[in-house]
Design a protein around this nucleic acid. Structure first.
Lengths: 220, 220
DNA sequence: TAGATTGTTAATCGATTAACAATC
DNA sequence: TAGATTGTTAATCGATTAACAATC
């Protein structure tokens, strides 16, 4: 039996998957059984061929004339991302942003379950943020071991980011969702994914500035 | 006099600029006057040539042997991003995430100043989140006009995202920093920059899953 | 059948990287 | 000077897009 060898999806492809997933859930609610790449593309202002390429990377085949089976497609993407069975994660830093993430119910859809929070601030330790208990940071290694948690969400001040990361790695954390503005150094086996607000804002700022260079350009 | 025609920096370049800026501030504190592309690259695990290309796009020239003047470089990037004089922005949605952003002092470095928050929740209206006053959403058009605010930070539930965007556009908002998971539709002149948490988490999840396909692979 | 849609193969486009002369 | 670093020009790489036969 010849198995098709799938090329590992590119990063841009992976980043588009959650968008597709959102639409698929919507279609499921509307009891739509099939969806075409044409339709998906139109909804998100993409090219149909790009959507098809993305879906093909999931190992799914569509049906000419009909498109792709909504349920099958949903399962394939969920499976691919590992979002069908939830991963447990620690929240490191129970400040403003940490609390916001703790209170965000949407992560359930993303297969992410925050099971505990950690902080060094004594006034926070022992309290609960959105039902998630806050522990002293030094308890993390012990709890990581006992609960088999390997994902850390980093929402603490920039100054503490690198040293805390070193500690997390020591404690067996192998994946870090980094909300700090620091480019973290971590050993090869450790995955770091950065949510780069500054980069995003830079793109926005630049676009805003680009729109009004008329006067300045005249002065040149 | 022949002026060098600068190619507009690519999006990836713009996204790297804030990282450079962080390092430059650090160097300034350490009273370093020059920095080489080699050093910057090493610090962020980039290629020196990429750093040089990025900086060249800012219109700055370096000095062989010495590198780039730290102050000059800082100014050029700040200028390029328009971060030297702060832009005023409205926060739309005073929930968990909105509050977190309102409380984030770091935006001052990014030339962003949140001047007011808006919500439809009566219990929030009239209160202050981190010193920022919360107004009823319907007051936004009037205030946008009076305060000449053109940037909106969208931190409200997905369900309200598109209709609220339509309203913002009507009210003269021309740039939206979108923290919702919705792909917003907006007229051509309006800039939308999305902070895509789901996309970021997808990349993380995928990497995590990729690390442990050993058992599954054996089953095939 | 006719025609919309898929999937394959090839072309294009843009960003990154390489090579190397110019500079101080 | 010697040598580290810049900036230019060319090569490579990877993602997107185009073209079109295959399919139901």
């Amino acid at each position: 039996m010849i198995e098709k060898i799938l090329t590992t999806p590119s990063l841009p492809t992976v980043r588009r998957l959650p968008t597709y997933l959102r639409l698929l859930k919507e279609l499921q609610d509307e009891k739509q059984h099939y969806v075409s790449s044409t339709y998906i593309a139109e909804r998100f202002q993409l090219e149909p061929i790009q959507v098809r390429k993305d879906l093909a990377a999931m190992g799914i085949v569509g049906q000419p004339r009909l498109g792709f089976a909504v349920t099958e497609l949903t399962c394939a993407i969920m499976q691919f991302l590992g979002w069908n069975n939830a991963s447990e994660a620690f929240l490191i830093g129970a400040g403003n942003l940490g609390s916001a993430l703790a209170g965000y119910s949407g992560f359930a859809d993303y297969g992410l379950n925050i099971v505990a929070a950690f902080d060094v601030d004594k006034s926070k330790i022992g309290t609960r943020i959105h039902d998630i208990k806050v522990f002293p940071l030094q308890k993390l290694p012990d709890l990581a071991l006992r609960l088999h948690v390997h994902i850390g969400i980093l929402t603490l001040p920039a100054a503490a980011a690198q040293t805390t990361t070193d500690m997390l790695v020591q404690a067996g954390i192998t994946a870090i969702w980094n909300f700090t503005p620091v480019k973290l150094m971590a050993p090869k086996g450790v995955i770091v994914e950065k949510v780069d607000l500054a980069a995003s804002l830079a793109v926005l700022s630049r676009s805003v500035k680009e729109k009004l260079p008329l006067k300045i350009a005249q002065g040149a």
